[in-house]
């Protein structure tokens, strides 16, 4: 065998290294998957304990309005999670709904109305908003929003409405920057085509740009909702943490996350009180999976190419 043939047939050092690298990256991927699966498994296991060991019925858990895990009634603890579920959804939907017009307006400013100055001013603002820790938002909410609500509506000032305003500011940058991405991914040629047909700028924005970017904007909104749903600290600081049905927007209420953060340190592992909190965590997990699924569905169905 000549030298060249031999060198081609024997695996070189670099090809061995390459194979090793491939295994290494596979290992990293594998371990992350294991962690995720473990978290899911653990939360599911603990979350189901309420229903298996503590004999709470699922319907009672989802529809009951009394939350008092330390009190037992007819053999099962009183864990009606509806107030928190309602609080979470209410605060998420209100904050997102409030943020959508602002986010789309801001995004249009940055992409279509005044791209140069709009981006120069708003980009740093958005990045700053993202970078502020949630405890700071909560603190500002506590010292500014809650007293303001108290002055306007009376009562304590704590409640869904205060949480809505705090969350509104927190989800705004998420929705805005993703909407900007969606708008910039609409080809310039669509805009030129529309303008060349005599459509005005507004008609172009409304009928062509926003229409084409709709799936992207929906994805942005769902991302914002997921963020709002999962936000714990800032909400907990202003929502009032009363496990009551949120019949009023300005009365103290609670969300899944706020009950979890306030409660988890005060319960003992394995007790019914603790199990009940894990069940709330399970609901959070299922919701975030639902949001993820929604994002994928929107992205797949709404892609421009058909």
């Amino acid at each position: 065998m000549d030298k060249i043939r031999a060198s081609i047939l024997t695996p070189s050092r670099s090809s061995k290294l390459e194979r090793r690298g491939k295994w290494l990256s596979l290992l990293c991927l594998g371990s992350i998957c294991i962690v995720v699966i473990a978290i899911f498994g653990f939360i599911t296991y603990r979350g189901l304990a309420t229903f298996t060991t503590d004999h709470v019925s699922l319907s009672k858990f989802l529809t009951g309005t009394d939350w008092n895990p330390s009190v037992s009634k007819s053999g099962a603890p009183l864990v009606g999670a509806l107030p928190m579920i309602a609080g979470s959804f209410l605060i998420t939907i209100l904050a997102t709904a409030l943020a959508i017009p602002f986010a789309i307006g801001t995004a249009l400013m940055m992409t279509d109305v005044t791209p140069k100055t709009g981006t120069r001013i708003l980009q740093p603002v958005l990045e700053l908003l993202v970078g502020i820790p949630s405890v700071v938002y909560g603190f500002v909410g506590l010292t500014v929003v809650v007293p303001a609500m108290r002055n306007i509506f009376g009562g304590s000032g704590f409640g869904i409405l205060s949480g809505t305003f705090v969350l509104f500011v927190m989800v705004l940058p998420t929705i805005t920057s993703m909407t900007v991405d969606a708008l910039t991914s609409v080809p310039k040629s669509f805009r030129y085509a529309s303008l060349a047909l005599g459509a005005t700028r507004w008609q172009t924005i409304y009928k062509v740009v926003l229409r084409s970017a709709t799936p992207g904007i929906l994805t942005a909104i769902v991302f914002g909702m997921a963020r709002a749903f999962g936000e714990a600290l800032a909400v907990q600081m202003v929502v009032g943490n009363a496990t009551l049905m949120p019949y009023s927007l300005v009365a103290p209420a609670s969300t899944l996350t706020s009950v979890l953060t306030t409660g988890i340190g005060n319960t003992v592992m394995g007790t019914a009180q603790n199990d009940a909190l894990w069940s709330l965590a399970l609901i959070l997990l299922i919701m975030s999976l639902t949001f993820n699924l929604a994002i994928h569905l929107i992205a797949n169905r709404g892609s421009l190419k058909r």
Partner: peptide
Amino acid sequence: GMVFQRPNPFPK
């Protein structure tokens, strides 16, 4: 009216 270099039909 104007027609451009690359065909640019709207996604409609």
